[in-house]
C-alpha cells in the first residue's frame, strides 16, 4: 500500500468517514461462500498479500489518525474504557514491545524504535510523539505502558491472563467495540466473556477454541474474521453509550440504507506474549458502507445471499433485526443469482 496521507474524518457527530477506492479494494470481505454459520475458523496469522490488510502483523491504514483521535475522545469522556489490573504489569510491557517492534519494522516511514539496552526511543511521526523511556520502568512513560501504546494503534486490545487452564480478560483497551463493555467484562473467564453466542455453545465451539488458545505459541499468532453490521460509521457502539447510538438502529429507510448501513468486519488476531505468558487478543474493525461495498457487484450479491439465509438467532444476536429486511430488499435487485464460486475476492 502506498497511501501517503491519513484522512481527516470523524466517526461521530457528522460522520465524515469514508473509504478511498484503494481501501474498498483491500476491505477484508468475510464471506467465501453463500451460507454463513458461526465457526471459529482460526488460521495462522502469517503475512498475506502485499497491499492487503494481512500484509503486516498489525495493519495501519488511511484511517489511522482519525481512529486514534476517536479513541482519545472516547477515553476523555470515559477513562474506564481502558482497564488495567496490577498483576498484568509484565503483559503491559509485552504489548509495548509487540506494537513498537511490529510498527517500526513494517512502517519505517512512520515509526522508529531504537534501543540501547533497556533505554528505548520511540518516534511516532504521524501522531507527533517522540518518547524516550526505560523499558520495564513505568515511571518513565507519561501513563501506564499499555495505555500509552494502545492509544497509538488501531483496534481494540484485550489481554488475557492464563491460569487454571483458562483465560481471563484482565486488561483491555476497548473503544470501538460491537456492544460489549470492558469495564463490565474485565476479569471474566473465556467462556463467561463469550457466551452465549447462539448456535455456538451446543457444538462445543468454545471448548475447542479455548483448548487451542491455551496452547497458542509465542511466535505463531493466529487470526480469524468476524462480522456484524452497524448503522453509521460509528466506532464507539458501546453499551455505555447505547442511549446515544441506539436510536440510529431504527433510522434506516429504503432511501438511506446504502449510505447509513455499514458492514463491520473484525480481524481478530491472537498473540502469545513472551514475558507474561498472557494472550493478546486484538480486534481490528473495518467499516464499509453498503454503497461502497456494491461497487464490487460480486460482494453485493454475496452479502444479499448471506443475509437472506442468516439464522434468526444470529440476526438477533448481531442486532440486525431492525434493518435486515430493508438491506435485503435493497440488495435484491443487484443479485442476478449467478454462481459466485468460492472465495472472498472482490471480482
Amino acid at each position: 500500500m502506498n497511501t501517503p496521507a491519513f484522512k481527516h474524518e470523524t466517526f461521530r457527530d457528522d460522520y465524515s468517514f469514508s473509504n478511498s477506492a484503494e481501501a474498498i479494494r483491500r476491505f477484508p470481505f468475510p464471506f467465501p461462500e453463500d451460507d454463513y454459520m458461526y465457526s471459529v475458523n482460526i488460521e495462522q496469522h502469517e503475512p498475506g498479500a502485499p497491499g492487503s490488510v494481512l500484509e503486516h502483523l498489525i495493519d495501519i491504514d488511511e484511517h489511522y489518525l482519525a481512529e486514534c483521535e476517536d479513541r482519545r475522545l472516547t477515553l476523555e469522556q470515559d477513562p474506564d474504557r481502558c482497564i488495567i489490573t496490577p498483576h498484568m504489569i509484565d503483559a503491559q510491557w509485552d504489548m509495548v514491545e509487540l506494537v513498537m517492534e511490529s510498527l517500526a519494522a513494517d512502517y519505517p516511514q512512520w515509526f522508529s524504535l531504537s534501543k540501547n539496552g533497556d533505554d528505548w526511543h520511540w518516534i511516532n511521526t504521524p501522531m507527533g510523539i517522540d518518547q524516550q523511556f526505560r523499558f520495564g520502568d513505568a515511571s518513565t512513560l507519561p501513563m501506564p505502558p499499555f495505555e500509552f501504546i494502545t492509544r497509538q494503534v488501531q483496534g481494540d486490545w484485550i489481554i488475557m491472563d492464563q491460569r487454571d487452564d483458562d483465560l481471563f480478560a484482565d486488561m483491555g483497551m476497548v473503544t470501538s467495540q460491537a456492544d460489549w463493555s470492558i469495564a463490565f467484562d474485565a476479569g471474566m473467564s473465556f467462556k463467561e466473556w463469550h457466551g452465549p453466542v447462539p448456535q455456538a455453545n451446543e457444538i462445543g465451539v468454545f471448548d475447542r477454541a479455548l483448548k487451542y488458545l491455551l496452547h497458542l505459541q509465542y511466535g505463531s499468532p493466529v487470526r480469524r474474521l468476524n462480522w456484524t453490521m452497524t448503522v453509521n460509521p460509528r466506532l464507539d457502539t458501546s453499551p455505555e453509550n447505547y442511549p446515544f447510538w441506539g436510536p440510529d438502529n431504527v433510522s434506516v429507510t429504503p432511501e438511506n440504507v446504502g449510505d447509513k448501513v455499514y458492514l463491520r468486519v473484525e480481524l481478530q488476531a491472537l498473540f502469545r506474549l513472551p514475558r507474561s505468558n498472557a494472550i493478546a487478543f486484538s480486534v481490528r474493525g473495518y467499516l464499509i458502507s453498503l454503497n461502497e461495498l456494491v461497487t464490487y457487484p460480486r460482494w453485493g450479491k454475496r452479502l444479499h445471499r448471506i443475509l437472506k439465509g442468516l439464522h434468526p438467532d444470529l440476526s438477533e444476536y448481531k442486532g440486525l433485526d431492525h434493518y435486515r429486511q430493508t438491506v435485503i430488499d435493497w440488495l435484491a435487485p443487484m443479485d442476478d443469482g449467478a454462481d459466485l464460486g468460492l472465495g472472498t475476492q472482490p471480482e
Binding site: H87, M88, D161, R163, H215, Q217, Y218, G219, P274, N277
Partner: peptide, 13 residues
C-alpha cells in the same frame, strides 16, 4: 529447538 512454551507458569494472583 522449538519456541519456548510455558506449562509451569507462576500464578500472578
Amino acid at each position: 529447538i522449538t519456541y519456548p512454551v510455558n506449562l509451569f507458569a507462576i500464578s500472578k494472583l
